[in-house]
């Protein structure tokens, strides 16, 4: 588990109400059974934790924790 993935899993834990084992392969919306608004709330926490901007429109192709980690890493390097 990369450092970004493990940090994302920690941030995701409060949204994990069905006790899913979190990993890079976790599908954030489908596996955790959380709705679109909750996903956006989670992304806001991620933005603040890494102090980066993740525009909502870049998230359409982002399903798993690994997908989100790629977005975070690309945006952290930029800054």
């Amino acid at each position: 588990m990369t450092d970004t993935v493990s940090q994302l899993c920690t941030l995701l834990e409060p949204f994990n109400t069905n006790g899913t084992a979190l990993s890079a392969a976790t599908d954030i919306s489908a596996d955790l059974n959380i709705d679109s608004v909750t996903v956006m709330d989670f992304v806001m926490e991620v933005e603040d934790h890494f102090d980066i901007e993740i525009p909502l429109n870049v998230l359409s192709e982002t399903r798993t924790v690994a997908d989100l980690a790629k977005v975070v890493e690309a945006r952290t390097r930029k800054g």
Partner: peptide, 13 residues
């Protein structure tokens, strides 16, 4: 409307 615009979307608290 934001989605339709194609703009970059940033949500604030």
């Amino acid at each position: 409307g934001c989605t339709l615009s194609g703009a970059k979307l940033v949500r604030f608290r």
